[in-house]
Amino acid sequence: MFFIEGTFEDVLIKIRDYVHQGVELVSHPLGASIRILFSPYRSVILGEKNNKINAYHIEIIESSIISYRNINAGRKIDYKNAHDYALIDVELLKVSLKSFKEINNNHINLFGGDSFETGA
């Protein structure tokens, strides 16, 4: 597990760097609603590092960054509700991890290890 000291956008940019190095994108970088884009936290699951770069994953992470910037232009990150965003972030992450493991029967290793703990 990697912890990025920074904003949602910093997390997306770090993911972009990894994806351009051949790391697979396992979960989608964005949430399912605009409100989640105001969150100070975002967890995304990355898979194995391959020798080949996945063009579709690059397209997804690049568009995610464009969307994030577009939606947050002029807006403030909602730090007031940081604790609740952390809670939802970890709940959504648990669902993604469960879904991922069910599909892959634990055959694929996650980038950065597959265990995580949270204080949320």
Partner: peptide, 11 residues
């Protein structure tokens, strides 16, 4: 369903 993982979405 709209899932979170890309594999789930493909399926």
């Amino acid at each position: 369903p709209e899932l979170t993982t890309l594999e789930g979405k493909f399926r």
